[in-house]
């Protein structure tokens, strides 16, 4: 880790100005649970840190209006414990409470969590492994392809990268059609979450639709009755404190016994939070049972491609989604 400057910004404007003034090597830091971690691994090497964890009003959680609004600086633990969110949008609350540990959820912000980077070991092991990684060193190749790929993506991979998008919260937000609020030197803008995460393609190092100097300031989620019939199911290598092997965010707007609209996104299996439109369409106007849930699960993975060790993720992902649909539909607990 190289020597760096640190400044704490008081508000968004101050932060953006500080970033511009800092020049080369400037980075915003909020909770630091990803950035500082990767700095310790030598993967991230900022020269200037602008601390945006305590921007004025940035931790606001507002569930009163037409949309749910989460200030980017709200802590993961606080959103996970919000009474309204827990009651009306369990998919959101669970995606947060099943992530990391309470210590980290007390540090990490819901805005920063959107920018969490992959757990691909070839990406993280820059120091000892020095493995080829197009994300870490564009053009160096991808050791994840043809490697120990048990954890790698089966959806959305390219010839340049098959690293999994690691988040849980972004998966739930993807299912719920969230919008990301962004401020930068050129003003503010809103980006649908479906446009926020890029596929790796030939540029796996470009992961997020956010420019240098821009800050995520908030997240809006349209209110929907689907929230009540929702869940975030996460399957991992241990019962807690682990990243997903497969996860599913499901919210169902019901019309009596029939699905009026399904919101489905997948985690742990794809190179970005993965909206499963095929599965949603398949559930449309159906009543939920094990058979249709599994059919939706299989539909979500119709285009999946496996390597040597991760084929199980296709079946596991389908079954995880099926279980999540059953839970959201109130068929199982």
């Amino acid at each position: 880790m190289r020597s760096l400057s640190y400044v704490r910004a008081g508000n968004v404007r101050e932060a953006i100005e500080a970033f511009a003034a800092a020049g080369e090597g400037a980075r915003y830091i909020a909770g630091g649970t990803t950035l500082y971690d990767l700095m310790k691994l030598g993967v991230e090497r900022p020269a200037h840190l602008i601390d945006i964890a305590s921007l004025e009003g940035a931790d606001r959680i507002d569930t009163r209006g037409d949309v749910l609004f989460f200030g980017a600086g709200a802590l993961m633990a606080d959103v996970a414990e919000d009474d309204v969110i827990r009651r009306d949008y369990p998919v959101l609350a669970e995606s947060l409470s099943k992530a990391a540990s309470q210590q980290l959820r007390n540090m990490a912000t819901v805005g920063g969590n959107l920018l969490q980077r992959t757990r691909c070991p070839y990406f993280r092991n820059g120091a000892i492994g020095a493995y080829p990684c197009n994300k870490r060193e564009p053009g160096s190749g991808c050791a994840g392809i043809g490697g120990v790929d048990r954890g790698q993506a089966v959806l959305g991979a390219s010839d340049a990268c098959n690293a999994v998008s690691p988040g849980d919260w972004p998966v739930a937000l993807t299912a719920m059609d969230a919008t990301i609020e962004i401020s930068g030197p050129a003003g503010t803008r809103s980006v649908p979450i479906s446009d926020f995460y890029r596929l790796p393609g030939n540029t796996p190092h470009l992961e997020f639709a956010i420019e240098a100097g821009e800050i995520v300031t908030g997240i809006s989620v349209p209110k929907t009755a689907a929230g009540r019939n929702s869940t975030y199911l996460k399957v991992r290598d241990r019962e807690s404190y682990a990243f997903a092997l497969a996860s599913a965010a499901v919210a169902l707007r019901m019309d009596g016994n029939h699905v009026r609209q399904a919101h489905i996104a997948l985690g742990g299996v794809a190179t970005r939070p993965w909206r499963a439109r095929e599965a949603e369409a398949l559930l449309n106007a159906q009543t939920i049972d094990r058979e249709i849930a599994l059919a939706a699960g299989r539909a979500a993975f119709a285009d999946a491609r496996a390597g040597e060790h991760n084929a199980f993720k296709i079946e596991l992902g389908a079954r995880t989604l099926a279980d999540a649909i059953m839970i959201a539909g109130g068929k199982i607990q």
């Binding site: 640190y6 704490r8 830091i29 630091g32 649970t33 500082y36 971690d37 840190l49 601390d51 964890a53 633990a77 540990s101 309470q102 210590q103 980290l104 007390n106 540090m107």
Partner: peptide, 20 residues
């Protein structure tokens, strides 16, 4: 694990600068 303002955090991933 330590507490900052009464909440548990991982002190290894907390910049010292942040406790000002």
């Amino acid at each position: 694990t330590v507490h900052i303002d009464g909440r548990r955090v991982a002190s290894c991933l907390t910049l010292a600068a942040k406790v000002d």
